[in-house]
Amino acid sequence: MIQRIQTIFLALVALIAGALPFIVHLWTDETGAEIFAKDSMGFSLAFYASALLALIAIFMFKNRQNQFVLNRLNMILNLFLLGFFVYRSLSLSGETSVSEKGIGMLIPVFSIVFLVLANRAIKKDEDLVKSVDRLR
């Protein structure tokens, strides 16, 4: 059942988390240098882990409960990323000129939205299977 709508949502998460942080900048520091995810090993690992969890969840379509749990773990990872970005943007260490926030800081938000939509579709499939089993 790889042709389900949750596969599209999870593929979007894998694409967003796996490629976009390395194309768009996360923020611009006080010197004007753009900071990408590839500049920090922690950010790179977190974004790659999110993309990998989404890809693994795509191929766990036979076990919907584990797919649901894996998506929840991915949401928690993206919430940590988002929390770190908010912390980093609010605690600029004594800069005289304000650094610019990039669109890359919103990548975890988009990932969380698509993961919620995927979980909603997985729940709908699970409810459909349970209702069919009840009729047998």
Rank of each mutant, 00 (worst) to 15 (best):
M1F: 09
M1R: 02
I2F: 06
I2C: 08
R4W: 03
Q6M: 13
L10N: 04
A11H: 04
V13R: 03
L15E: 02
A19F: 12
L20V: 15
V24Y: 11
V24L: 15
L26D: 07
W27D: 06
D29W: 10
I35D: 01
I35E: 03
F36D: 05
A37C: 03
K38M: 04
D39G: 01
S40Q: 06
S40R: 00
S44V: 05
S44R: 05
F47Q: 00
A49V: 11
L52M: 13
L53W: 03
I56E: 03
I56F: 00
A57E: 07
A57L: 11
A57F: 03
F59W: 07
F59T: 08
M60E: 14
K62T: 07
N63T: 08
N63H: 14
R64I: 13
N66E: 14
Q67I: 14
V69F: 13
L70I: 14
L70P: 08
L70R: 07
R72M: 13
L73Q: 09
L73S: 07
N74V: 08
N74Q: 02
N74F: 04
I76L: 14
I76H: 06
L77N: 10
L77H: 09
N78V: 04
L79Q: 06
L79P: 07
F80H: 03
F80C: 15
L82T: 01
L82W: 09
L82G: 13
L82N: 11
G83N: 08
V86Y: 10
V86K: 02
R88G: 15
R88A: 14
L90P: 04
L90T: 11
S93L: 09
S93P: 15
S93Y: 11
S93Q: 13
G94N: 15
G94L: 07
E95N: 09
E95T: 15
E95H: 12
T96R: 06
S97D: 12
V98S: 14
E100C: 00
K101Y: 08
G102W: 01
G102T: 04
I103W: 05
M105H: 01
M105A: 09
L106N: 00
P108G: 01
P108D: 00
P108Q: 00
V109R: 01
I112H: 00
I112W: 01
V113R: 00
V113G: 06
L115W: 04
V116N: 03
L117W: 06
A118I: 08
R120K: 12
R120N: 02
K123M: 13
K123L: 15
D125F: 02
D125R: 06
E126G: 07
D127L: 15
L128S: 13
L128C: 12
K130C: 08
V132N: 07
V132G: 01
D133E: 14
R134L: 09
R134T: 05
L135F: 10
